[in-house]
Design a protein around this nucleic acid. Sequence first.
DNA 1: AGCAGCACTCTAACATAACGAGTGCCAAAA
DNA 2: TTTTGGCACTCGTTATGTTAGAGTGCTGCT
Lengths: 345, 345
Amino acid sequence: MLEINERAQRLLKKLVEAYIRDGQPVGSRALARDSGLNLSSATVRNIMIDLEELGMVMSPHTSAGRIPTTKGYRLFVDALLKIRPLQDQEVILLKNQLNINGKMEDLLESASALLSDITRMAGVVMVPRRDISVLRQIEFLPLSDDNRVLVIAVVNEREVQNRIITTARRYSPAELQQAGNYLTAMFAGKDLCAIRNTVLSEMSAAKDEINSVMQSAITMAGQVFSDAPTETSYVLAGQTNLMDFTELSDLAKLRQLFDAFNKKNDILYLLDQCLCAESAQVFIGAESDYEALEECSVVTAPYMIDGKLVGVLGVIGPTRMAYDRVIPIVDVTAKLLSAALNQRP
Amino acid sequence: MLEINERAQRLLKKLVEAYIRDGQPVGSRALARDSGLNLSSATVRNIMIDLEELGMVMSPHTSAGRIPTTKGYRLFVDALLKIRPLQDQEVILLKNQLNINGKMEDLLESASALLSDITRMAGVVMVPRRDISVLRQIEFLPLSDDNRVLVIAVVNEREVQNRIITTARRYSPAELQQAGNYLTAMFAGKDLCAIRNTVLSEMSAAKDEINSVMQSAITMAGQVFSDAPTETSYVLAGQTNLMDFTELSDLAKLRQLFDAFNKKNDILYLLDQCLCAESAQVFIGAESDYEALEECSVVTAPYMIDGKLVGVLGVIGPTRMAYDRVIPIVDVTAKLLSAALNQRP
DNA sequence: AGCAGCACTCTAACATAACGAGTGCCAAAA
DNA sequence: TTTTGGCACTCGTTATGTTAGAGTGCTGCT
């Protein structure tokens, strides 16, 4: 008897849809009426008991209707949900709202804002992973005062990273330029992680084989790439949208959630996990194992640069969200962002 | 009769202190007991009526005690409050928590976190005003591909700004270096605002008087400084701390406040106003005329670079805050930040 | 298996009452 | 004139009861 047959699935689907729509426990009568199956409420009740034993639904108290559990949502999303792809028209609308021009950071922010605006939930866009960044060019620039040198690294065509290092002695502009050329020739096209390893081994080995300027160059590169922070982060938008949902109206819960947004590492870890999947993914409620996300679902999709998955974007909202709408939106936004990142200015 | 004599002031002081301590309307009996003046509750009641007519206090409903109004807080802060300066020991504690090393942005974040941690409210640090920034050095760097040039401007010894511009034709590295030297010689030591104006007039006038590279340099500088965003912004920390205060437990109000934090411009405008004052300043409740800040007070103090006021930091919390503690904390933190910013690394 | 019917449970909404803190005001005391 | 004790009154809080309605679980009939 305890199987989820066609009929039970259909009822579960209707139940989840109704709950997502109205936000209130769904009773057997309403369900029987709307199911399309010609069943009486009593029969529906019997099926509900089965579904409850299977852990798909629960009732908040004796004389209330049923609401889906995490497991119920999971089945719904994986098997029952029919996502309707966006209309071309809607895609164009999204496209227009994405700020293509300008720096990468602006682009990410724009994508995040787009997600949050259109879903009325929180949008999140992970900054592309650094260890997949490719060095294009590196330059050393003398600063007017003492032994400080400004190092500029151009990465991925778009990004510029700079930092100031202090050197052992003062270098002439010519020396610095030579060092820059040397390193650029040596490392251009490689990813920063590989460079770091090469530089470190290079430094310990064969100290005296190369001439002094090159040696200095290596040493300086060591300073640049060694403790380089793994600055993976994300851009968040519309977190205040979450304050409008009644299921998050508990201030303590809400604070926990916002603190998680600020601390970043938990959310980041979650996003990082989504980086391997090729398409949209959904985390429902407590599945993510973070207390702060207990009442929330996260819908993510990865985006690409040069054909490689380098980041993830998504939407965070209450478990009770319109998955059929949100999933395609996230999916399309990821594709749009990929397109924007790959087109050279 | 309607004057605020010594005695009335003392009572108001006690009332505000009690309300800040307990967060509940203060009744005449308690006030009479704690005032130190040997008065009956009836007398206190009469005085309260006077204070109410003067707009210093109000009662939330008929049979409740009195709470201070904005005007009452104002008098309290301006005339009645005795701020006790921090102990040397406490100052050292603060100093140790400030992250002196690292980039300026880290320093500002550290100061903001410090403020929010120690006051358990929201800390805010304005990024130094750009128009007071002084150019040290400017360099042009060729990028490997087409006609794009990377411009690096070193500002205020610490900061590095960079942007990529697209040029009309391709320049050789030598040309670019020459252009950089020319502009550095011309503008080093001037503030960015002045530079912008000079460049713009220079561009329109005397197009043909100078040689072509210099002319190009001017044109490029025009690109760099023209639409340069007035990127005044701030670093916020601990906004979730505000969720613990019962007076902000109304979700709609809280959302308004958080939205204001995100939009930034209102808060920024407020902070900007504080830039002229030399020492700590307090905005109480609706004084700032922003609906979102209705229930909040803002305590600010300016900080300096090279003896000039360039930014403001502060604390945002509920109107009912321990001003005697917060004001000196903000004051000292501003001084510590000034010191950290001025000491050359 | 499916269904009607019924007793039961629980919540939400509303009414009612008791309590207590605190006020406003007045007349008496200082 | 100022201060004070006293007293009636107001209002929010809390506890308690009542009712209506929605929904369930179960039983026995088809």
